[in-house]
Design a protein around this nucleic acid. Structure first.
Length: 111
DNA sequence: AGGTTGACCTCAT
DNA sequence: TATGAGGCCAACC
């Protein structure tokens, strides 16, 4: 009976797990895809809960300007940038290079 | 039970 | 064009 809210978190995990390697997306894009356009913050909370879940490529999720705002929440601040570069994503000054090109919109790509 | 914070985004000045 | 404030929903104290 009371299990609907938790579904939102799992929904975020599913979308994040579907992000192709070398690609990145934004919180708002995921929130919009899930239907909660204004709840971009909840996506961030979901990713925090996904912290123990290493299977979730949370490092591929950045804000709308392509800035690694959540790197501080990783085990190591450099882990996020390191992982992105490890997948071929260039990062400079905590900012994703060619973010518009690497941007992966679930509403369009996943459709 | 209520108020504040937060891995954000959009609008208004 | 840049800066400021508000809104959103859930978790934490």
């Amino acid at each position: 009976m009371s299990e609907g809210k938790k579904n939102f978190f799992e929904d975020v995990y599913q979308v994040v797990k579907l992000i192709p390697k070398g690609r990145v997306t934004s919180y708002g894009a995921i929130a919009s895809y899930l239907g909660s356009k204004g709840s971009a913050r909840m996506v961030g909370w979901a990713l925090i809960a996904s912290h123990p879940m290493t299977q979730i490529p949370a490092h591929r999720v950045v804000n709308r300007i392509g800035m690694l705002t959540g790197k501080q929440h990783f085990d190591e601040p450099n882990a996020m940038r390191d992982r992105l570069e490890q997948e071929g994503v260039k990062v400079e000054n905590d900012q994703v290079v060619n973010f518009e090109k690497l941007f992966w919109d679930p509403a369009k790509e996943l459709l």
